[in-house]
Design a protein around this nucleic acid. Structure first.
Length: 155
DNA sequence: AGAATGACGGACC
DNA sequence: AGGTCCGCCATTC
């Protein structure tokens, strides 16, 4: 996870120092790393990984730099943030909900550049009919995240 | 300004 | 089920 001016700028599923360094250096000069902070986004991400069921409120509470993204992507991310833990929505549904029915493909493009994967639960957006379509870290990772959430809900 | 680019979706085979 | 083709839409170069 990378913070810039106290706001979440990037989240890595399996961060390596090389990747973080690359992200920080190339995309967000001046940003700092907050992988293990005890409060704020780092804490939220850690709790998620430990199985805590995050609510929409938890996501909304993140000090996210909403200015860095386009108006359309902003709408898509906000709508995505409302998908309940363990539930899923389709690209087409998100498109319709942000007022651009038919822009399913564009929704995919917007989510593909989600600066805060996992925290803004883009892994809960799937293809119509339940197909898992793509995911930045791979279909397997997407599947794993959904299974992970199902398990936690059943506990 | 125009063309290329996808984490879509629907039609068809 | 799986593969191709094509129309869509926001973004990027």
């Amino acid at each position: 996870m990378v913070l810039s001016a106290g706001k979440v700028v990037s989240v890595e599923l399996e961060p390596t120092r090389e990747r973080l360094g690359k992200t920080i250096g190339e995309k967000f000069p001046g940003a700092g790393e907050a992988a293990a902070d005890r409060t704020g986004p780092g804490k939220t991400l850690r709790e998620y990984s430990e199985g805590r069921i995050l609510s929409e409120k938890d996501i909304a509470a993140l000090p996210v730099d909403w200015d860095r993204i386009s108006p359309f992507q902003l709408k898509v991310l906000r709508k995505t943030a409302k998908i309940p833990y363990g539930k899923t929505a389709t690209y087409g549904e998100i498109a319709a909900e942000v007022g651009n029915p038919g822009a399913a493909r564009a929704v995919g493009a917007a989510l593909a550049r989600n600066p805060w994967p996992v925290l803004v639960p883009c892994h809960r957006v799937i293809g119509k009919g339940g197909s898992l379509v793509g995911f930045g870290k791979g279909i397997a990772a997407k599947d794993a995240l959904l299974k992970f959430e199902e398990r936690n809900l059943r506990r």
